[in-house]
Design a protein around this nucleic acid. Structure first.
Lengths: 184, 184
DNA sequence: CCAACCATGTAAGCGGTTACATGATTGG
DNA sequence: CCAATCATGTAACCGCTTACATGGTTGG
């Protein structure tokens, strides 16, 4: 569990409301960490209670219920402590591989379409990442912060490239079987 | 959720006990799907109740409590149905990237050691995968089933290779900073 | 005016993790 | 004999997902 820390990191980058955080988690940070608004509001409540963050009504003359959250020194401290903890890389949990393995043991189930669809999805994500790369990082002098963010983005790019390449190889195999009618 | 289906796939490959499943999930299948023995026993119970599998006391003369599980036709049916469902690839959930991002916004926290450690772990996994590749797949005529299993293994290999390469790049960056003493 | 979006929540359920527990068999 | 491994469970907790709910603001 580290959602609170992910939220504080995001808040340090820029203070904002829970709603804004939820939207941000659909974008940049959300590429490697997801969270629903329900989770976010709950965690914000807990974190405020713990004294890690504080909130203030947004400067909109009380028109909305919007609250802006800000990280407090104890939160910073905690984030710093947490960031230095070691964590093993998670092993992937890929449902599709289980399906593939089921197809291997139960005979042809027609997973070609699914392979195509998934390759399309990976291509799309790759495109999205490449667009961010083009917009924010290529052909610029990068600060230390930007350099690190670029490193993270590159991890995503490499991952998607790998997934696309793998999908293509898998498709080649399945299509060859389809062409010659091999069943086992 | 698809642990029951992962278990049935494993049982179709070879009927065995819950304990054996737990060990197998620490190996081949476990490279892309993990489960603790507690989960496994609970799911086996549910699946038997649902009529997807059945169990019989092991053929050891009642020496142990060991029970061998076997997939029944309804379980096969269900697995076939499930295997054809589409699933989007999961987006990675990488705690370490959150930490990196925290390091980006809070200044140097000394994540180099952690990067080295993680690179070592990825190298180890890669080695393990390569050993399996060598032992089970290279220089052999592969059946349809083996070909698919090899495809899955290759996905793991590519993933680890990518992770190692990325770690090296990240380390280069951090070491360059350390060498010239850049702080921001 | 109405739809879309902003903004924040509650409640139920489930899968996964952690801790705890038991007893039998095997090997040194 | 003792430790490790085999083998199977129970109980509590927690984060995440899904469904449901509310009310205000903005723009066409």
């Amino acid at each position: 569990m580290s959602l609170p820390h992910a939220l504080m990191t995001s808040l340090l980058e820029k203070s904002c409301s829970g709603y804004d955080l939820a939207r941000r988690f659909g974008k940049s940070i959300g590429y490697f960490w997801q969270a629903s608004h329900q989770q976010i509001y709950r965690e914000l409540g807990r974190m405020e209670e713990a004294g890690w963050i504080r909130s203030a009504a947004a400067d909109d003359g009380g028109k909305t219920r919007k609250r802006i959250y800000e990280v407090l020194p104890p939160g910073c401290e905690e984030l710093r402590r947490w960031a230095q903890e070691p964590v093993d890389p998670p092993n992937l949990r890929e449902e599709f591989f289980v399906r593939l393995r089921a197809e291997a043991v139960m005979g042809p189930l027609g997973l070609e379409h699914e392979l195509e669809r998934r390759m399309g999805l990976h291509s799309l994500r790759l495109q999205a990442y490449r667009a961010i790369e083009q917009r924010d990082f290529l052909g610029k002098e990068l600060s230390r912060e930007a350099t690190i963010q670029y490193l993270i983005l590159k991890a995503g790019i490499m991952q998607q490239e790998g997934a696309v390449a793998w999908s293509q190889e898998a498709l080649r195999v399945f299509r060859a079987w389809a062409a010659i009618g091999v069943l086992g």
